[in-house]
Design a protein around this nucleic acid. Structure first.
Length: 520
RNA sequence: GCCUCCCUAGCUCAAUUGGCAGAGCAGUUGACUCUUAAUCAAUUGGUUCUGGGUUCGAGUCCCAGGGGGGGCACCA
């Protein structure tokens, strides 16, 4: 591996010079010891409480604090200085006066050896400045960590109504993704998105835990991949001389656990799909799947709408949300419509009257328009039905909607609808025209399952050497017997997009996938 | 993989028909003991993504490459 040496730019060189000057004065730039009695927010709270408890300003009980944070505003004014420091809780102003502190401590600031972006520790008594800002009157001051590369400059102006206007921005998309640490450090709104992301996952867990589900972990490296139709990433175990696949879903492992006697299991984890990226696809993404014995897909629908509504309520305090300008009501019950009725509604095609694939293709082409033109020739019947749904129905599904009863030939793990040789008990749900999840009454007849594997192998990717493989061990598990089970999968990233009003998946991923940076 | 747009100072952006590469912020120096987008004065800073080409002259036009955005395809 070549190590590319860092060549400091002019601004960075100035900071290196300052670091050397600090150490020449005997001031460590990266000390090990640090103290903190209050977060920035807690220090402000403690003071405002002391204020309201006092009868007169002179009677305010002194509030001594030691606070820490990164310098985000630096205003040196002769023999005094105002600094804003920021920790995760928020910002706090430090008021430094040369008379109040040791001269060498004040000199760190007045000589600009301690500056923007540095981490510092300050001790003192809480006060309110003449301009009314709660601040620390600093008596002791210490550098905690020197910043050698200046962060992008963003200034803030607080309006009378409390809203903050920002001047300057760090908005270059590529730089923000490649240097997410800098993005997070200067863009508080970005920090907030990922705090919400954590709350979303916590709420989903809470909901499932409260419903008696057991959280489990299954292999990420799988000898046989399955449960979806995506191309996998392939890797190799040297010692075992074995090719392994990064999972494209958890489905087949979780159902093995239902065979094993657990009534309800779920997993939240990463899937990997070797496919294109888009505003709603990343090569690795976070999936939730759950399986519950002794229920069917109708009960899964109820769980789904309750779980999403619960999550919105926990994270946002409401089930009525705004996404990309649209008001969306997540409160149950959600609309339910069969795939057949939905397609009839938006295209006036009844695919049940067009069971011949050539007849269906002709009918779709007769619809005209771009949506009809994008249909690729020679598609299997079920894929064309899906094309109809995707092109003509999906964009209209703004409010949460369950589309139910999918064609069997695109649903190899779902149970057939009784007395219906076309459909399976499967649903997908859509919000704002985007697919969020997929669920079905699980197929538990091992004979039927084996047949479906064979049909899949024949139908999909016949040009690929690695066409959807038959999972013999999964069939063995099915032969031991699996109870009637409802199963569910949902992209967590998309749920986070919905609840944080983000248009692209990359903005809810801390480190979205990018190509390697060019060598200098 | 295809189409299309973009890449200029640390950040955000200008640069007329191809004609001296600029501004604001920050940085540097100085002033300032209640500032808050602090203010005032002075001032530094460029591989215009990379490599070729056309031209008297290229940030600008052409070719190739890299990275990114948007779209398409793929993603049962």
């Amino acid at each position: 591996m070549n190590h590319r040496m860092w060549t400091p730019n002019r601004l960075e060189q100035e900071r290196i010079d300052k670091l050397n000057a600090l150490e020449a004065r005997g001031t460590p730039a990266y000390p090990a010891r640090v103290e903190r009695t209050h977060t920035c927010a807690a220090a402000v709270d403690a003071f405002t409480q002391a204020e309201s408890a006092a009868e007169t300003p002179e009677a305010i009980a002194p509030v001594a604090v030691t606070v820490t944070g990164r310098i985000r505003r630096h205003n040196l004014k002769g023999k005094i200085a105002f600094l804003h420091i920021e920790d995760e809780s928020g910002r706090l102003q430090l008021f430094l006066r040369i008379n109040d502190m040791k001269p060498e401590a004040f000199a760190l600031v007045s000589d600009k050896l301690v500056e923007m972006d540095d981490f510092v520790q300050a001790s003192g008594t809480m006060m309110r400045t003449q301009a009314g800002e709660v601040s620390v009157r600093v008596s002791d001051f210490k550098l905690l960590a020197k910043s050698l590369s200046p962060l992008p400059v963003i200034k803030q102006a607080k309006q009378d109504d409390g809203t903050i206007i920002e001047y300057g921005e760090f908005s270059d998309v590529e730089a923000r993704y490649r240097q997410r640490y800098a993005d997070l450090a200067v863009n508080a709104s970005v920090r907030e998105i990922f705090r919400k992301r954590s709350q979303v996952i916590r709420a989903v867990r809470e909901f499932l835990d409260n419903d008696g589900f057991l959280e489990v972990e299954t292999p990420i490296l799988q000898p046989v991949y399955g449960g979806a139709a995506a191309r996998p990433f392939i890797t190799h175990h040297n010692q075992l001389h074995q090719d392994l696949f990064l999972r494209i879903s958890f489905e087949l492992y979780l159902k093995r656990l239902i065979v094993g006697g657990y009534d309800a299991v779920y997993e939240i984890g990463r899937d990997f799909r070797n496919e294109g990226v888009s505003f709603k696809h990343n090569t690795e993404f976070t999936m939730l799947e759950f399986y519950k014995a002794y229920i069917d897909y109708r009960a899964v629908m109820e769980l789904t709408e309750q779980m999403v509504a619960y999550t919105a309520q926990q994270v946002l305090g409401t089930t009525t949300i705004r996404y990309q300008g649209a008001e969306i009501n997540l409160a149950p019950p959600w609309k339910r419509i069969t795939m057949r009725d939905a397609i009839k509604q938006y295209t006036e095609i009844d695919y049940m009257e067009l069971r011949d694939r050539d007849a269906l293709e002709a009918a779709i082409r007769a619809l005209g328009g771009d949506q009809a033109r994008t249909l690729k020739p020679g598609q299997p019947w079920g894929k064309m039905v899906e094309h109809l749904l995707g092109e003509f129905v999906e964009p209209h599904l703004i409010q949460p909607t369950f589309i139910t009863d999918y064609p069997i030939d695109i649903s190899p793990f779902a149970k057939r609808v009784a007395y219906d040789d076309v459909h399976v008990e499967r649903f997908e749900f859509y919000i704002h025209g985007m697919e969020f999840g997929n669920a079905f009454t699980e197929l538990n007849d091992p004979r039927d399952q084996e047949q479906r594997f064979l049909e899949m192998a024949a139908l999909y990717r016949p040009e690929d050497d690695d066409a959807t493989p038959t999972d013999e061990d999964y069939l063995r598990a099915m032969r031991y017997g699996m109870p009637p089970t409802g199963g569910f999968g949902m992209g967590i990233d998309r749920l986070v997009m919905l609840l944080t009003d983000q248009r692209t998946i990359r903005d809810v991923l801390l480190f979205p996938h990018l190509r390697a940076e060019q060598e200098a």
